[in-house]
Nucleic acid binder design. Structure first.
Lengths: 150, 150
DNA sequence: CTCGTGTGACTGACCTGTCAACAAGGAGGA
DNA sequence: TCCTCCTTGTTGACAGGTCAGTCACACGAG
């Protein structure tokens, strides 16, 4: 029942999931690279575009569940590449406002359709309604459980 | 049918999966760090232990689906930390043999039970037989599809 | 034999992510 | 006011990963 090793049935499930994880991660990253972006850049760009207005690093971090340090490093790199700007004008003197540049918006527009098509083609297409229900329910349950446990 | 955005139903599925991915990755990495290891170290240690004898970097790479460069960097770091040794004695003069050290074996023994328990507690526990069947089937199908497409 | 091609492994440059430390600004109570 | 504590954001050091380039060797065709 609780040995030191996963039994074959457990291993088949967990191994299949790990393989899925690996090929989806590398495939998605490759697709975004072909479109001139990257996973991290894309997530930040989408977050800013959907908000419709400049955001503080804190809000980006909350949205993506990234820690402050990661957000800061990522924004510095994206600023150097001309995708976003940071301005310190703010009510809270600690704060920074991060805004999309024209180039950032254009990078997002160039990458988004291919990304959406990739997700449909390589993930959603393989799920019928019942599969999708199972996957969504299980995923939410695991996320809830792990999030509450923190 | 094929708009530029994911519709709400698609987004619920894909978003749930991305969240699952994120919490499992960070949780698993944290658990292994608490046990004195890391995801990359652990995979290499398990591969070597299960083989039961020293392996060549090529074989480790094939087993884990890592490229040669990644394997080489990882082994260099693990050798510096005393987890493995590399010896150049070999029939094929290009080859290297990678072996576990006592410390490597001990690190694995210290990490394995907690890792297995973590996978059961945070992943397998949430899947009944039907869920597991759906997940395994879908994962294999997606992996096959993406692997063949390379 | 030797030439060409493929394989095994390493390295350096560079990008990404985590952690710990830090600086500096708010916010509230004694 | 002053003290304390929390929040925001940055940075440096480091582990991890990808990519391109390099070197040595293996091996079959001719």
């Amino acid at each position: 029942m609780s040995s030191q090793q996963l039994d074959p049935r457990e291993l088949a499930i967990w191994g299949a999931f790990l393989d899925l994880w690996r090929v989806l991660a590398s495939g998605m990253e490759r697709q975004l690279a072909d479109a001139g972006s990257s996973g991290a850049d894309y997530q930040v760009l989408v977050t800013l575009e959907e908000a419709g207005h400049p955001l503080r690093p804190r809000d980006i971090g909350n949205q993506l569940a990234w820690d402050r340090s990661r957000v800061s490093h990522q924004l510095r790199r994206m600023e150097q590449r001309g995708l976003v700007t940071r301005t310190s004008v703010e009510v809270d003197a600690r704060g920074t406002l991060v805004a999309l540049t024209a180039q950032g918006r254009q990078t997002l527009r160039a990458a988004a359709p291919g990304h959406v098509a990739w997700v449909r083609q390589n993930f959603l297409r393989h799920l019928d309604d019942d599969d999708a229900e199972v996957l969504t329910r299980v995923a939410q349950q695991i996320v809830d459980s792990l999030t509450r446990a923190e």
